[in-house]
């Protein structure tokens, strides 16, 4: 039914935090004054000591997370002029917990004027019996640039062969640019979400994803199962795609190499 109407606000959880800023002394070099893991999420600095390009951080799931009942949060702020790329070392697999009930994953991204954030984690995979409520809030100042990828995979092969169903992923993505709401979108995929497998929503595809680009180049896909959507804001584009599996989805979101 209309059960997952709005994602209930998750009770406050301590968030893993990253703050990226320009080095006050040496221009054009991004430093990370705050880099702190929390709960099951550890953060690892990559390319440390590099003097060119963006600062890079990898999200590391220190445990098999999230499990039903978990509350995970990440908060990232990129200060004016800084450049940050965030990746993850592996897919995030959402698993059922000891008690029935969902897990919450909260992502908060803020990008200041002239700053660049690339948020390119590996996919979220919904294992049979799990339900993950994913909430992402992105706040962009005027002139902030962003590349944000989100990939949702319904079930591992094992979930389909053994259980015949994947888990459920309810995801809400809200983007503000210079105070204006330019994207507010919730998808609810997996058992319990009405019509999710039908011809209006996924029609048998097991992977869905998008690449949001603001102020950076992007290319229109040639495939039928992807489209580049110009959002109401300034130079903001959403590449949306559905695919039979994660590999095919990544190809659609990456474009011809």
């Amino acid at each position: 039914m209309a059960g997952a109407l709005t994602v209930p606000a998750p009770p406050a959880a301590p968030a893993a935090r990253i703050v990226a800023a320009l080095d006050g002394r040496e221009d054009q070099i991004t430093v990370l004054p705050v880099l702190s893991g929390a709960g099951p999420l550890a953060l690892r600095r990559l390319r440390a000591g590099q003097r060119t390009g963006p600062a890079e951080v990898a999200l590391v799931g220190a445990m098999a997370a999230p499990l039903g009942g978990d509350r995970i949060a990440v908060s990232v702020r990129v200060e004016a002029g800084a450049r940050l790329r965030v990746t993850s070392v592996a897919a995030t697999v959402s698993l059922p917990g000891p008690q029935p009930g969902p897990a919450w994953y909260d992502v908060e991204l803020a990008v200041a004027a002239g700053a660049v954030l690339e948020w390119l984690p590996e996919p979220v995979v919904a294992a049979a019996g799990s339900h993950l409520l994913l909430t992402t809030r992105i706040t962009l100042d005027a002139g902030a640039r962003l590349r944000y990828r989100e990939e949702q995979i319904l079930g591992r092969r094992h979930d389909w062969t053994v259980h015949g169903v994947p888990g459920r992923l309810t995801s809400r993505l809200t983007v503000r640019q210079a105070g204006r709401l330019i994207l507010d979108q919730q998808t609810d995929l997996g058992p319990g979400a009405p019509g999710w497998d039908g011809p209006a929503v996924l029609a048998g595809h097991r992977a869905a994803g998008q690449l949001l680009t603001v102020g950076l180049p992007c290319t229109a896909p040639s495939e039928e199962c992807a489209a580049l959507l110009a959002l109401p804001g300034t130079d903001a584009h959403l590449l949306v795609a559905v695919a039979p599996d994660g590999l095919a989805l990544r190809r659609l979101l990456t474009g011809p190499l």
Binding site: L5, T6, R172, T174, L181, D184, Q185, Q186, T187, D188, G195, P199, A200, V201, L202, A203, A208, E224, C225, A226, A227, L229, V240, A241, V242
Partner: peptide, 14 residues
């Protein structure tokens, strides 16, 4: 407006 539903369907957009 935040409490208002924002439900969407990937295929309908495509």
């Amino acid at each position: 407006a935040q409490p208002l539903p924002a439900a969407s369907a990937p295929l309908l957009d495509l």
